[in-house]
Amino acid sequence: MSDALVETLHSSLLELDQPKTVAAARAICSGDGEPSAEQAVQALAAALEIVGQRFQQEDWFLGELVYAGEIAKQAMEILTPHLSALATQSSGTLVVGTVAGDMHDLGKDIFITYARSAGFEIIDLGVNVSAERFVEATQVHRPLALGISCLLTICAGGIPQVIEALAERRLRDGLRVIVGGAALTAEFAAEAGADAFAPDAVTGTRVIEKWSGV
């Protein structure tokens, strides 16, 4: 059994060594099933957890956060076909978008990378998403949670509008709403009627994992 390969996958992601991480993922897939792709995915998730801690502790910044997410994504693409049917089952569906009037997608996209790595299926509505489009997507996809991003203070008023529109269509019950972005605070999120505030992509992913019971 070659736990060394899993260890390499984990450590090379934390060294932001893309070739080495990808090579380790390939080696695991072409092996005899020991270590398994599932073990590899767990190692990646554990490494991303550490990436998140480093970001929160200010050791790392956006560049490392985005790059680590990108490397993990590439490794996941290699590993996914080798996962058992049980393991490929989605942890849940998330509908994600940036609020109306706001064109910023950076924070939203980092969140999506991390949530996908955690096994969630993402419906990305893009930027400048109207309340109506959030409602429609919720009706169609019946997601576990709705994620709304907002960078501009002036657009933050759009968030309670989305949540009210969901309530009007009786879609709010059983749906969790998480919001994040530079314009927002935990207080604002609570006042707007959201279930959670994500100060960063990693924390946000952890909140959703809790909701899905992963």
Partner: peptide
């Protein structure tokens, strides 16, 4: 040129934060 709509902006911006 509205930068928000430039497909490359995000990538270049991240690289330029270093």
């Amino acid at each position: 040129v509205p930068l928000a709509t430039d497909a490359r902006f995000q990538e270049v911006f991240i690289a330029e934060t270093a």
